Amino acid sequence: SGVNQQQLQQLMDMGFTREHAMEALLNTSTMEQATEYLLTHP
């Protein structure tokens, strides 16, 4: 699906929903950016 499943699982383990985590990974290129994205786009 174009996203790193390991990163997706890590974000879900942090408490984010699958949909939200996927959106973040699709819009960013690193785990750090994805986390930042999730925190700034709740």
Rank of each mutant, 00 (worst) to 15 (best):
T35V: 15
T35P: 04
H20W: 15
T35H: 15
Q7W: 15
V3G: 06
Q9W: 11
E32K: 08
Y37S: 05
Y37K: 04
A24G: 04
T30N: 10
Q9M: 12
V3A: 07
F16A: 06
E32F: 04
E19G: 10
H20C: 11
G2E: 11
H20S: 12
M31N: 02
V3T: 08
G2M: 14
H20K: 13
D13H: 11
Q6T: 11
T30E: 02
L38N: 02
H20F: 15
E36I: 08
Q9F: 11
Q7P: 04
A24N: 00
L8N: 00
A24F: 01
L38E: 03
N27T: 06
Q7V: 07
A34D: 01
S1H: 13
D13T: 10
S29G: 07
M31L: 15
Q33T: 04
H41K: 07
F16Y: 13
N27E: 05
Y37F: 05
Q9N: 09
L26R: 12
Q6H: 12
Q33M: 06
E36R: 08
G2Y: 11
G15T: 01
E36K: 07
D13E: 12
E36Q: 09
S29T: 13
Q5S: 11
G2H: 13
P42T: 14
M14W: 09
T35R: 15
R18Y: 08
T28V: 04
F16N: 03
A24C: 02
T17W: 07
Q6K: 12
Q5N: 10
E32L: 06
Q33K: 06
Q10W: 11
F16M: 02
M12I: 11
L39P: 06
S29L: 10
E32S: 06
L26E: 08
L38D: 03
M31R: 02
L11C: 01
D13L: 14
A24W: 01
E32Y: 04
Q6S: 12
N27Y: 09
T35E: 12
Q9S: 09
Q9L: 12
T28D: 01
Q9C: 09
T40M: 11
N4G: 06
Q9E: 09
N4P: 08
S29I: 06
T40H: 10
M22E: 09
P42F: 15
M12L: 07
T17R: 13
L25H: 01
E19H: 13
M22F: 09
L8W: 04
T30W: 02
D13M: 14
D13G: 14
G15M: 03
Q9T: 08
